[in-house]
Amino acid sequence: MPPHRHALLPFAVALAGVGFLSLMDAFMKDAALLIGAYTATLLRAFIGAALIAPIWLARGARMPSRSVWRLHWIRGVVSAFMALTFFFALTRLPLAEAIALSFIAPLIALFLARVLLGEVISRAAIGASGLGFAGTLVIVGGRIGQGQFDSCMALGVASLFLSAVLYAYNFIVIRQQAQVAGPLEIATFHSGIGGLVLLTLAPFLWTPPSADALAPLLAAGALTVAGSLSIAWAYARAEASALVPTEYSGFVWASIFGWLFFREALTWPTLAGTALIVAGCWLAARPARTSAIPAV
């Protein structure tokens, strides 16, 4: 294979992985609208575990140590509620807007890394956060200006922001996990523990699933595994800085799938707000050129 084609392959696989996960979001929105966000999220977790665990076992799985178990449990708890709040938000917001607002998670992660890992916050990160915040105001303000921001949508935005905070903390845990466990092990315990955590809420939130929700749930489970493995494969073969831009293709995918699945129109405030958020993420990802701001 020519060198340039070899270099482009991880980028293409990462792009496909983001597409798989965006399509998964569309199927999950469909399922959540049919049977509720909780039931759909719980079943997706167990379907994902059932699909990935046999692959992990077939590749010579070993049970993790106590310290690794702790990381798996922490991420399982965090990701369980991260997914539940995100998929609930999808039932209240257009798919593209939800994806756009979720892009603030990397910016939140910068500040969590300072608090939890002692990393230094650069001046660029402060400016990036300002752009990200401005972007969210543009998106939400566009809805208010159109008279479409009711209590139902406000609940969706609040749920989305909570999911973004949990996703940001999820970044921190993933960074720790990746140093002590492989992608298949991480994916297996991520889905399995997440499902067990959500199962504790079944007496309060469970609703019997309808037959027409089975197909989108199975599709969502398979796409979750395909997307996660594709991204893990790509990031193992190329630098993260080269692949980060593929994450923002999720907005394009979401816009396409939102229209195809739900006939959701794309608005100019959403486009403008997304541009500001992505610009903030790009600014934060650049190598620091100015002195860092020490924590007080």
Results as ranks from 00 to 15, higher is better:
residue 67 S to H: 12
residue 69 W to K: 08
residue 69 W to A: 09
residue 70 R to T: 13
residue 70 R to P: 00
residue 71 L to W: 01
residue 71 L to G: 00
residue 72 H to D: 01
residue 73 W to T: 11
residue 75 R to C: 03
residue 76 G to V: 02
residue 76 G to Y: 00
residue 78 V to K: 04
residue 78 V to F: 13
residue 79 S to F: 12
residue 79 S to G: 10
residue 79 S to K: 08
residue 81 F to G: 01
residue 82 M to L: 12
residue 84 L to H: 02
residue 84 L to V: 02
residue 86 F to Y: 15
residue 87 F to Q: 05
residue 88 F to K: 03
residue 89 A to G: 05
residue 91 T to R: 11
residue 94 P to V: 02
residue 94 P to G: 04
residue 95 L to C: 08
residue 95 L to Q: 03
residue 96 A to D: 04
residue 97 E to L: 06
residue 97 E to G: 04
residue 97 E to Q: 14
residue 98 A to M: 10
residue 98 A to C: 11
residue 98 A to T: 06
residue 99 I to P: 01
residue 101 L to W: 11
residue 104 I to T: 06
residue 104 I to Q: 01
residue 105 A to R: 01
residue 108 I to G: 00
residue 108 I to W: 08
residue 109 A to W: 03
residue 112 L to V: 04
residue 112 L to N: 03
residue 113 A to H: 09
residue 115 V to S: 12
residue 116 L to P: 01
residue 117 L to I: 01
residue 118 G to H: 12
residue 119 E to M: 07
residue 120 V to A: 15
residue 121 I to Y: 06
residue 121 I to R: 07
residue 121 I to E: 03
residue 122 S to H: 12
residue 126 I to F: 15
residue 126 I to S: 04
residue 127 G to F: 14
residue 127 G to T: 08
residue 128 A to Q: 02
residue 128 A to E: 00
residue 128 A to M: 07
residue 131 L to N: 04
residue 131 L to I: 06
residue 132 G to M: 02
residue 132 G to I: 00
residue 132 G to F: 03
residue 135 G to F: 11
residue 135 G to N: 06
residue 136 T to G: 12
residue 138 V to R: 03
residue 140 V to C: 10
residue 141 G to V: 03
residue 141 G to E: 06
residue 142 G to S: 09
residue 143 R to L: 14
residue 144 I to K: 15
residue 145 G to F: 13
residue 145 G to D: 08
residue 147 G to K: 13
residue 148 Q to M: 14
residue 149 F to H: 09
residue 149 F to D: 05
residue 150 D to V: 08
residue 150 D to T: 08
residue 151 S to Q: 14
residue 152 C to E: 13
residue 153 M to Y: 04
residue 153 M to F: 06
residue 154 A to R: 09
residue 154 A to P: 02
residue 155 L to E: 07
residue 156 G to I: 02
